[in-house]
Amino acid sequence: MNYHEAFFKYLLILGDTSLILAQRLSEWTGHGPFLEEDLALTNIALDTLGHANVLLEYAGKVENKGRDQDKLAFFRNGREYFNVKLVELPNGDYANTMVRQLFVDAFRYHYFNALCGCKDETLSGLAQKAVKEIKYHYRHSSWWIKRFGDGTEESHQRTQNALNNLWRFTGELFMPDESEKIMEEEKIAPSLSQIQYIWNEDIQSLLKEANLTIPKDVYMQSGGKQGVHTEYLDYILAEMQSLPRMYPDAKW
């Protein structure tokens, strides 16, 4: 893998993770537990879609084969998507959605914070903007996890179940793909092991405060960054891509 290929794939890992998460979150639109939360998740989905838009547009420019962000989003198959598996999992109940969001928010907050100092101007510019938005998302998900974990017996149990279910998907966030290793050597990507260290500290202290327990000796799932996904991704893509694939030149 040369520098150019690695950079393109690196941007797809970041962009696809944002895009698929945004798509999942937007499934809550109109179905939130109450109106304010419905608005909150819709806003968070929109922010995340905005990050995907910038990242995939940039990926298209780096690839330089005439693909824009829409071409990349709507005309690639599951095996060509490189998001982490965590974001493609079904929403489940609200506790499950919030635990997943907490894991992703904590990761993205520290990741984009580190990316602010990266030597690539487009990425550092986006990161400076995005980190302010993600800070809000992170506050929001942390707040809910504390309320759920320390709330009623049922809210506690549901959140603990979500944690048990999702923990095995967190390892992949920190397992570098070949492209990420190359980008780290090039001083573009932040070090995933450093992010993992801060992430662990944050998550452990928050879960402790929420009276939740991290499951022990869990086998960590991986594969998303190499295009090997769970059975859920193709269903997301089928829904997201059906219209542009049926009418490729359709305009709003």
């Binding site: 608005l39 968070i44 922010d47 938005e133």
Partner: peptide, 13 residues
């Protein structure tokens, strides 16, 4: 505060 997210991303309700 009713909601930290309002009618647009930049506003709270």
């Amino acid at each position: 505060l009713i909601s930290p997210y309002g009618s647009t991303p930049c506003k709270a309700l």
